[in-house]
Design a protein around this nucleic acid. Sequence first.
RNA 1: GGCGCUAUCGUCUAGGGGUUAGGACGUGAGAUUCUCAAUCUCAAAACCCGGGUUCGAUUCCCGGUAGCGCUACCA
Length: 511
Amino acid sequence: MATDRVRVRFAPSPTGYVHVGNARTALFNWLFARRHKGDFILRIEDTDVARSEARYETQLIADLRWFGLDWDEGPDIGGPFAPYRQSERHKLHRRHALDLIDRGLAYFCFCTPEELEAEREAALKAGNQPKYSGRCRTRPREEAARKVAEGQPASVRLRIREAEFAWDDLVHGSTGFSSEVIGDFILLRSDGNPAYNFAVVVDDEAMQITHVIRGDDHISNTPRQLAVYRAFGWTPPRFAHLSTILGTDRTRLSKRHGATSLENFREMGILPEALTNYLALLGWSASDGVSEIFSLENLVEEFSLDRITKSPAIFDQEKLNWLNRHYMKEASLRRLAELAIPALEEAGYLSVPASEAVLAWLERVVDAVLKNLDYLRQLPQAAKVIFEYDARILAENSDTWTEINEPGAREVLGHFVPLALDAAAAEGGLTYARFREITKEVQRQTGKKGRELFHPIRVALTGAASGPELEKLIPIFEEGSKLALGRPVKGVGQRLRDFAALPAFAGVKEA
RNA sequence: GGCGCUAUCGUCUAGGGGUUAGGACGUGAGAUUCUCAAUCUCAAAACCCGGGUUCGAUUCCCGGUAGCGCUACCA
């Protein structure tokens, strides 16, 4: 390591989505860098061009920024060790591979895929570790060079010597493999592109990476990489291997488990601070063993690699929801209202762009239903009582319908509806204060109070047996009815007229 | 098949040779409210199995089992 300064990197393949496992790896790298006032580097591993498209990289960067991370060096911002795309570093990889051949530490291999496959199957059948036999290992260098010059396709393999490959893992402690299980693996493919285990090492060394924090699926790759470091005489970085994130069925979390990518969570309306907090808690805990709510800033202060768990963790959407509810309560209503717009538009409730008046009204809507939400995507559903009122549908809902047809309920409505209708007509709407005066009057006339009084009124007004407080809903109805929305919101007067028009309540207005 | 990693409530975890094994999510009950929710209170819920070491193991060691990963000219 050429520097004492902590330098870590996140090196994803741009595949079109950022899996939460990768997001957590990125987060832990970032936290470690920030904790030690070091550098966090973004490097794109795009050697496999079939899977890499420019737009994937753009999306990857956007997703990571949304997630709350920033980096000191990367493909979008450059830096002293550019380029930061693996595909643009292939010349360097080739030069290093050839250098190893010159020094007799690597060699050209002319075996065909068919030959290798046959070898592999034979080894497997014999119950042996299926590793490369070393057939091309002893070919004289001149002969190999001649074949290459003739244009024969050749890969480059590392000459593995008998050795133990051990390291002190920052998460797992001392870990090691015998060279028996490795075999002379590929450095450079016959198409000239580097293999992953070679390219990462060359790039990490060139970028002076001091700590490699990555998923534990790379544990078995580590001895190969150590072999490369050893061949070059480089000092390897420290390694920290993070456990896998599993789905509820204990298999590796994948797309079929539902929301698993940053994009998924953003679309759901999960707040990034909730997701970083949750992911930090998945496999890491604070030193007091109790604290769970952490902003990114607090996480930077508290984070340490030695408090990372070794065992795999199952992703729990419920706990993420809990954190998201927590952070939604902390967020400004304006921010939440803006985040809810796409879902509301999709539901046909809103037309964009939303005016300032609509946004201000939306804040009240968010405020009214927030307690019922796990994430913002659920807002249209939770706000249905505001946007959709249909007295006829109410009449088809047997439970609710039966309730308000009880004699007591009919009595309450018989008094309430005409009073409220008159007030709304006379005053051009109904304030909550006025609404309360009317309910008090109804209470005097009927002797009903509490649930007996309010439940029928709620049903008549909202069409539903449950929902936000009427204190919040009534002003929302009234103000909403004055706004130009994707779907007109009915005011109190309109709702009661619709209700009174139901045949079953035909007499209610005159009662 | 070989190699490796892992194992505390349903889930995320704390802890550690002697503890009433702690917290959180979720669940259940109660309180409160016009309802749902939110909130508050309470409750149920765990050391994978078998050996060893030890006066004593959930904790340390070994084995088993299970889960996961790697075993590529994928990354």
